[in-house]
Design a protein around this nucleic acid. Structure first.
Lengths: 199, 199
DNA sequence: CGAGTGATTGACTTAGATCAATGACCGTGG
DNA sequence: CCACGGTCATTGATCTAAGTCAATCACTCG
């Protein structure tokens, strides 16, 4: 599901990594597209500036996230990318991607499928963030992130990171998890959470 | 940018429309994929149910929204779709889409580009919903939805609909717009908003 | 005309944000 | 080896923006 998985060796071989200092601009709005990036570490923000100078944040990509997936098909970047923290990114050059795309329909399918998955993920985050109560957001996240068995959730990072993902302060997340534990809705062992039947 | 635009006549010719009653299930989790849908009117919700019976809402598609874009590439639907209101949907059959996809690389590109745009839109909604204050969300929406000139916004629907899109109650949206008007940040004429320079 | 809905504003409630403090843990440099 | 700075996890007290409830007016449509 990550961008990396959907890329053939031919493309991977031509990729390069770049290190960015905090604040450094990776590409700017209107500049010609050179390819798709993947964030390896740190955070990179995408933002757009209006004709009238109004600014809006579009996306903050973290380790593992792809960046500028549309740029394969367009001439110029529609937004600016800049590092929020020191960051390392990998560039998959447009030419290699386009060649593969034309040459191999199964690569094209894989790329489209990857985009469709990213889209579904993003949409479910939208639904989650539309929920008013912290508890509902936490439940939603847990249900969509259980293991095969449907019971256990392995938290990928820190609880602070999860709080950010859920659009909550970390304090509220701690309290909510504590309350859910007290209520017998979940059980916690370190960074592993077990989702119990509520009925 | 809508799904319709990226489809060639060959596919459009094979599409069919279906009417759904409120609550009617369009497809269920695990059932074999028949194609991609587009919502013509009403609302259709996508939801997933866990092995353990836990339920989570993934997406609510409204008029103009595509549904199950990944289904072209997969055997079974990963979630359930059901009408929230009476709804009309259009089905683009999988076979026709797949044929086009294999046959015409430019269609494949168009489809992927459409997905990438949808993705960018969804991500910016995530950023918007992550903002704490109503005013910040409204500003974000306005900046990303100005006309060519970068000043005017034509509201597509009602303010109540916009409030839902912004994750706010309609009362709060009214108050926020009123306050922004008082503060000279925007001007309103019916469903047209003018974004002023804040300096 | 009357029912239904959107737009709007006021009064009150509340969940989450903020501020603050503490303990656990971890790596690092003297 | 241990002290110290840093971050994470956690909890309490307080504040506040948004939600809720309620009322009014305008408008549309059968």
């Amino acid at each position: 599901m990550s961008i990396e998985d959907s890329l053939p060796d031919a493309v991977r071989r031509e990729s390069h990594t770049y290190s960015l200092q905090k604040g450094e601009v990776l590409f700017s709005q209107g500049s010609p597209t050179v390819g798709v990036y993947e964030v390896l570490s740190g955070r990179v923000r995408l933002a757009r500036t209006n004709h009238t100078g109004h600014y809006a944040l579009l996306y903050v990509a973290q380790a593992g996230d792809p960046l500028a997936e549309a740029s394969v098909f367009t001439r110029a970047y529609h937004c600016e990318a800049a590092a929020v923290t020191p960051a390392v990114v990998r560039l998959y050059p447009k030419a290699a991607l386009l060649t593969e795309f034309e040459r191999d329909a199964s690569f094209a399918k894989g790329y489209a499928l990857m985009l469709a998955h990213q889209l579904m993920t993003a949409r479910s985050r939208v639904e989650r963030l539309s929920m008013r109560f912290a508890r509902d957001r936490v439940r939603h996240y847990l249900v969509l992130n259980t293991n095969e068995d449907g019971c256990f959730i392995e938290l990928p990072g820190t609880l602070k990171e999860l709080a950010r993902e859920l659009g909550l302060t970390h304090e509220v997340l701690y309290r909510t998890l504590a309350q859910m534990t007290r209520d017998g809705e979940i059980e916690r062992t370190g960074h592993r959470i077990r989702l119990l039947q509520t009925k």
